[in-house]
Design a binder for these strands. Structure first.
Lengths: 337, 337
DNA sequence: TGTCAATGGTTGACCGGTTATCCTCGGATG
DNA sequence: CATCCGAGGATAACCGGTCAACCATTGACA
């Protein structure tokens, strides 16, 4: 127990070696492949490590072995909880192979995606997952296998793309609402690639059904306030609206606020459905209908492609869509109008 | 533009040096202190770096300079959004000094705090912020300055503690509700240090006022479901309850669900107040009264102590409380009973 | 008895930067 | 004219591991 150890230099592999009476490389061996070392020495090394409070230096390991067993994940904002499932998926598929995930957020608003990937790259990540909307043309994928997760406007050349099929999700929502007898449906959209695909899928099915297309907030943000504003606009301009589809759950919350402000009860007078199946939607109190984009599965798939491409860098970047799942809860109901 | 560069070994400082016709150390100098290099060579080095797509290796830098200019932050779950403000506070105080924050989550449930700190330590972080509830006795603070953020049961020896004053916050809530005329108040508590302090502060003020103490869920979790269960229990056993204080906003959401299930309107028949002033509470739709624990300020303070202790390791770990702020919104109102 | 392989361990070069020290050269100074 | 000085650069050791190559011992087998 190095509890009262004078705060001296941290012990190195050499200190351990000396203390255990073996060579440094033997210590290294114990760390990597203990079975190749005799029982006796192994124990000697281990007790030495424990006594000294030894902890390997990742920097040295990285430098010497030129592999970090880690992949980088770039997200844009920790508040967008959708990355959590992605992260779990990644980790579950990666950890059996001894790989870890290193996170970097591209500071919301400041759009520091390039800086974020640079930082990750300088840490020698062996692969890159970009779960943020790139605005500058960036060139990830030049040095390490990269894949973009989530629909984005610009996918850098050389990077793969694995994402939930937002087109399909949008269509599913339209199908659901039409199936409930709604014919006066508003959509709260926003800027960005994900919103665009959800919108397109939704619109195509709506048009197919010969129903009027009502979309608001197409070039606005995707916050609760944006959702509120868009919903208010729709409800004011189309008072006969019986259902609202928000591009994400947060905006759906805004839609609920707008419904309340307009004195409309949900779902009796107005159905509301979000997207992402976030904590918000799952909440017992809100219990919102939503679309689960299976981010966990996306994560697993991303991890597997990355692993494959790390092993064989000649592999072509993949493009793949994961089918989402509609989750019906208590904010959507049969049209009564 | 190394766009079509054959995917070869990443360029090193030696490659840059050769390409620019200078020595490696000169390249290093350009990176650290450009003013010490003549205009001519500086430009030569810079263009060489750009052409080669050079990116310094953090591992090598760390190893050679034995400083990483980074501090580690351990959180327990990315879903507990309270860390976001803390992070912003940390970054805002750290970045002027060139320091960065490295995150590690201790996988919810799995309690891998020790592993998380170990990982961070092996990356040579110069300081450690622990924003998670340690269950095993751990010995952070042995090697690098550490501080625990947020009330916790066990603060490791040698670590500082900077946190929002949850006792005070609990008292403020009691004060607020008493001031609104409530005398039959229930508290939804949970296990863990933070909840305990909020409970104690609340109770002390309630007792002071000579009002009955009603607490539920003291040894349960702190999820929305837990909040729902505790609220139901209270409302069933004390049907005359007019106000509920939840140990956090998520539990407050559960309380709202319970109110709805019991047919009670908020705030007319039942006042509900949470804690943390999270996105949830701030939401336009929910608009919940809550307590802002000023995590951003905690972050700034943590950063400053850490910075000071990194410079002068003999400094004693600090203990400090930040006073929270009551945020009154629309879920609390004057008692009508 | 000599050869060979397996087991267990050590040596030393190397990863990509940093930094203390040394070198060089032009100009100012006495 | 000899000396000193300082700015701009180069050299080389070092950070803490890894790993290929090498060495020593033991036992099996022909």
């Amino acid at each position: 127990m190095p509890l009262n150890t004078p705060r001296t230099r941290r012990p190195t592999i050499y200190d351990v070696a000396k203390s255990a009476g073996v060579s440094p490389s033997l210590v290294s061996l114990v760390l990597q492949n203990p079975s190749k070392v005799s029982e006796k020495r192994r124990e000697a090394v281990r007790t030495a490590m424990a006594e000294l409070g030894y902890r390997p230096s990742r920097a040295a390991t990285t430098l010497a072995s030129s592999q970090t067993k880690s992949i980088g994940l770039v997200i844009d904002d920790f508040r967008n909880l959708w990355f959590v499932d992605l992260l779990r998926g990644l980790e579950s598929a990666l950890s059996p192979h001894g790989y870890q995930v290193t996170l970097a957020d591209s500071r919301p608003g400041e759009n520091r995606i390039t800086e974020a990937t640079d930082g990750l790259l300088s840490m020698h990540v062996e692969g890159l997952v970009i779960a943020a909307e790139p605005s500058e043309p960036m060139m990830a994928g030049t040095w390490v296998p990269s894949v973009v997760a989530g629909w984005r406007d610009g996918v850098p050349a050389g990077a793969g793309l694995i994402t939930n099929d937002d087109d399909c999700g949008g269509r599913m929502v339209a199908e659901h609402l039409l199936g409930l007898g709604h014919t006066r449906i508003g959509h709260l959209s926003g800027s960005g690639g994900a919103a665009a695909h959800r919108r397109d899928g939704f619109r195509s099915r709506i048009v197919e059904a010969g129903v009027e297309v009502r979309i608001a907030g197409e070039s606005q943000g995707t916050s609760e306030e944006d959702g509120y504003a868009a919903a208010c606009w729709l409800l004011d301009h189309h008072p006969d609206t019986t259902a609202l589809f928000a591009a994400n759950d947060t905006m759906a919350l805004g839609a609920l606020a707008a419904a309340k402000a307009h004195g409309l009860s949900v779902p009796a007078e107005l159905s509301v459905i979000g997207y992402d199946n976030s904590q918000l939607a799952k909440s017992r109190y809100l219990d919102m209908s939503s679309v689960d984009n299976r981010s966990d599965i996306v994560g697993v798939d991303v991890a597997n492609t990355l692993l494959a491409r790390i092993q064989d860098p000649t592999l072509e970047p993949e493009r793949k869509l994961i089918e989402p799942v509609l989750v019906v809860r208590s904010t959507t109901a049969r049209a009564t109008g």
